[in-house]
Design a protein around this nucleic acid. Structure first.
Length: 473
RNA sequence: GGCGGCAUAGCCAAGUGGCCCAAGGCGACGGAUUGCAAAUCCGUUAUUCCUCGGUUCGAAUCCGAGUGCCGCCUCCA
């Protein structure tokens, strides 16, 4: 079976085939660091992380590039010109560079907390201005761009494929006619490659003047090209990036290099909160701190956000997080039961017991992820394995193989807890003390100790085979 | 107004022409286990896939119409 991905450009599932055998060049549209990443942002980046992990599990070397947009993301794409980071800086009365540095730090911390693997490169827009200017010059030379005073615009009419990704062709944009006409532009859909404005704080000198700064779309074209070359295998982003951002990137990059830009475009569906768009007004723009303040761990959030298919809508509520927490605890139990069986605890007499269930779960898991990252399918395989082991038991040899499988499952999903839990001396003492109390049938004392143990995060179960303990996340 | 997506049990969520009287999860209910248990286990929980037509030997899956919801076109992953 081969890995299939849904390509939003061709709008069909296609077998994934890297341009260079064995290597995947992947560009993930990263955050604009003018604010704290919220759970909607996080969903998109978690999708990119799972994608990267699965490609690696399939034996491919992934060169993952995720940018940080720290300059150039205009508030208004129709170009009136305030930069989002500068706007935030003005609100906070702080230096824009300080704003972007601060939120970049927070973003990286969130990514680490959520178990996202570190990309090979995290380029910053502000450090790629010369590369952007090089593309702009090239586009001017080829006649795809034109200069008006200190501004440079891309002329969409010159690029016939404009609109292929989003369906917003030049003709349809005219029909829609919601773009403000700016006198100096030749067509309302033309977008800025470079702007000049003396009031700007983050600005660069170029032949277009001393007060220049880049347009929003050019940075990704420039960074992708610098770090991955003219052609990428995969380009990802949130669905809101389809238009205008990615449409414009294609126009810039392909006009400049005369080669197809990305072979596969993958877009994660928007996250909703309480059935609608999250909004500052409703106060439901949650971030990782809010989630933790409610008593949930980053790992639980990760599970909740990757549990559904990335192309399906996800309606976030505190309820689904609670649900995710319960479900994840069951998977944790599966892991610790298998680990115990590997140690020879609570194993079935026949070492091969459970082998059939494992033989069924493994391909189901793989086929799920191979089918455009069908995480729900892959997870179902894990839950089925759990039921089968509980019902029929697991032998020691099978347990060892199952543990290898779970390691692979975790390598791709990043949500399991595979480090073996151990009990410290104090905990062992408490458990022994409780056993003693139980032997004396001193139930009040036994229950008191059990509560104490529970408060320390360990749950005890009395089974016919003795006491089983589990750490609860 | 233009472009696009989605509608499956109480809830979340796979499946996209026969393996489906529809996976998996959460919850609920019943039972088991237990000194007790909020812990654990077992069982039950959609003859049906938004509605109405159509295509087909056969449709949740294809086509048409309708309804509802969502996204983009303006900030946003």
């Amino acid at each position: 079976m081969s890995f299939q991905v849904f390509d939003s450009l061709s709008k069909e599932k296609r077998v994934f085939q890297p341009l260079e055998p064995g290597v995947v060049r992947m560009y993930n549209c990263g955050p604009t660091v003018y604010g704290r990443a919220h759970i909607g942002n996080l969903r998109t980046f978690l999708f990119a992380d799972v994608l990267r992990r699965w490609l690696e599990c399939r034996g491919l070397r992934v060169v993952q590039v995720m940018n940080i947009t720290d300059v150039g993301h205009l508030l208004d794409d129709a170009d009136e010109g305030e930069d989002k980071i500068e706007a935030q800086a003005r609100r906070e009365q702080r230096d824009p560079w300080e704003i972007s540095r601060g939120f970049t730090e927070l973003f990286l911390r969130d990514m680490r907390a959520l178990g996202c693997k570190e990309p090979a490169v995290r380029p910053k827009a502000s450090e790629h201005v010369p590369e952007m200017l090089a593309i702009i010059e090239g586009l001017l030379a080829k006649g795809f761009a034109y200069q008006v005073g200190g501004d440079v615009y891309y002329e969409v009419a010159k690029f016939p494929r404009y609109g292929r990704l989003s369906g917003n062709t030049v003709a349809e944009l005219e029909a829609g006619a919601r773009i403000d006409v700016r006198e100096e532009k030749r067509h309302p859909a033309d977008f800025a490659l470079w702007k000049s404005d003396p009031k700007h704080l983050m600005k660069w000198t170029s032949r277009f003047g001393p007060d220049g700064f880049p347009g929003w779309h050019i940075e990704c074209s420039a960074m992708a090209r610098k770090h991955l070359g003219d052609q990428l295998d995969i380009h990802t982003g949130g669905e809101d990036n389809v238009f205008p951002h990615h449409e414009c990137e294609i126009a810039q990059s392909e006009a400049f290099t005369e080669k197809p830009f990305a072979n596969y475009w993958m877009h994660a569906k928007f996250l909703q909160v309480d059935g609608g768009k999250m909004s500052k007004r409703l106060g439901n723009v949650w971030n990782l701190d809010d989630v933790e303040a409610r008593g949930y761990t980053p790992r639980q959030l990760r599970f909740a956000l990757i549990r559904g298919h990335y192309r399906g809508p996800l309606n976030f509520t505190w309820g689904i997080l609670e649900e995710a927490k319960s479900a994840l605890a069951k998977l944790d139990d599966l892991v610790s039961d298998v680990q115990a069986a590997v140690r020879g605890e609570r194993v079935a007499p026949d070492p091969r017991t459970g082998a059939e269930a494992l033989a069924g779960a493994r391909p189901r898991f793989e086929q799920g992820l191979d089918d455009d990252l069908n995480v729900p399918q892959a997870l179902a395989a894990l839950f089925e394995l759990r039921s089968a082991f509980l019902e029929g038991g697991v032998g020691r040899a099978t347990a060892q193989e199952a543990l290898d499988f779970l390691r692979r499952a975790d390598a791709s999903l990043g949500v399991l807890q595979l480090t073996e839990a151990t009990l410290d001396a104090r905990m062992q003492q408490l458990i022994a003390a409780r056993a003693e109390a139980r032997a004396r049938k001193d139930w009040p004392a036994s229950d008191r100790i059990r509560d104490e143990i529970a408060a320390l995060g360990v749950v005890l179960q009395d089974t016919p085979q003795g006491v089983v303990w589990r750490k609860k996340a």
